[in-house]
């Protein structure tokens, strides 16, 4: 693997961690978030500031996870007040609020010009890839574990019908906040890794378009499905890189793909997969 392929692989890993976080919130627990990039940004800026202050990288990453998760819980309380479309708009607002604050903080956070000169994590590129890969494994394992646990069952209940879940004594508020805490913590981890990877971060890296890109990775892959999200993320990250045609028209491609998937296959790649399995399964029965 050359440097270019290594960098691509690292970016794919970071995006998968980010997307798995959103999948926990939106896919498992049914709470739509259009501000996921803000938590990615919180993670990245936490690492940026702490690393420049001289803290060791493990401490920085850990702080990024805690910070994003903590602010995630605060933002998550919004989901206790507002639902569905209102929540989508509120989280979108949180994204813009985050950007607005970062842009005006020129002293600590570098404002419009961003933070540069962030120290290295202490590993070379292959070592970094191993770390990013471990992060992917951990987050996937956690996601799969939650899906099979009692908590996953409760998330499902909240996502399907909140009022009925409440009636059946599921503690809806606690589960929603847990989903937000875990999902945003993953975004914080992704942000921390991203900051160490690029060593230069700017407000625009964490704008509304990033939130939408992450959402499209989850939606294209199949909302709620861990393998689907991983495939969707890898696909949407790599396809624009593979051909120059697609990279020139990257956003057009994203937009059109997002629209086409929602219009023709709202269950995403995972849904198509399930359908194929069903068809073949039925054929098998017929024999």
């Amino acid at each position: 693997m050359g440097i270019y392929e290594l960098s691509l692989a690292i970016i794919v890993c970071i995006n998968i961690v980010l997307a798995l976080g959103l999948n926990l919130i939106t896919g498992y627990c049914g709470q739509i978030s259009l501000g996921h990039a803000a938590f990615f940004g919180i993670g990245a800026y936490t690492v940026g500031v702490l690393a420049k202050a001289g803290f060791p990288s493990a401490v920085c990453i850990f702080a990024a996870i805690l910070m994003a998760g903590f602010i995630g819980i605060i933002v998550g309380t919004a989901s206790l007040r507002v639902r569905d479309d209102f929540l989508a708009i509120t989280t979108m607002g949180v994204g813009f609020l985050f950007l607005g604050i970062i842009r005006q903080q020129e002293g600590l956070l570098g404002g419009e010009m961003g933070l540069s000169g962030i120290p290295t994590i202490g590993f070379d590129k292959p070592g970094f890839l191993v770390i990013a890969f471990i992060a992917v494994i951990l987050c996937s394992a956690l996601s799969l574990y939650i899906k099979r646990s009692w908590m996953g069952f409760a998330f499902d209940a909240v996502a399907t019908d909140e009022d009925t879940a409440k009636l059946l004594t599921v503690d809806v508020a606690a589960y929603k906040l847990t989903a937000f805490a875990l999902g945003t913590a993953m975004a914080g981890l992704a942000g921390g890794l991203y900051c160490y990877f690029t060593r230069f971060i700017m407000p625009d890296d964490f704008g509304f378009l990033t939130s939408i890109s992450v959402l499209s990775m989850v939606a294209v892959g199949g909302i709620g499905s861990v393998p689907g999200v991983i495939i969707g993320t890898a696909l949407l990250t790599l396809l624009p890189e593979m051909s120059t045609f697609l990279s020139d028209y990257k956003l057009l491609f994203y937009g059109a793909m997002l629209f086409a998937v929602m219009r023709f296959a709202p269950e995403g790649i995972a849904g198509i997969g399930t359908r194929v399995v069903q068809i073949y399964g039925r054929r098998g029965d017929a024999k």
Partner: peptide
């Protein structure tokens, strides 16, 4: 765009609409 997906859950139309908007901006 909207008529065929009206019976789907609300996030479907929302994401489709965002996709459409991004594509329009690029066009």
């Amino acid at each position: 765009c909207y008529k065929p997906i009206l019976h789907k859950p609300p996030y479907v139309a929302l994401i489709a609409s965002i996709g459409l908007f991004i594509a329009m901006e690029e066009i």
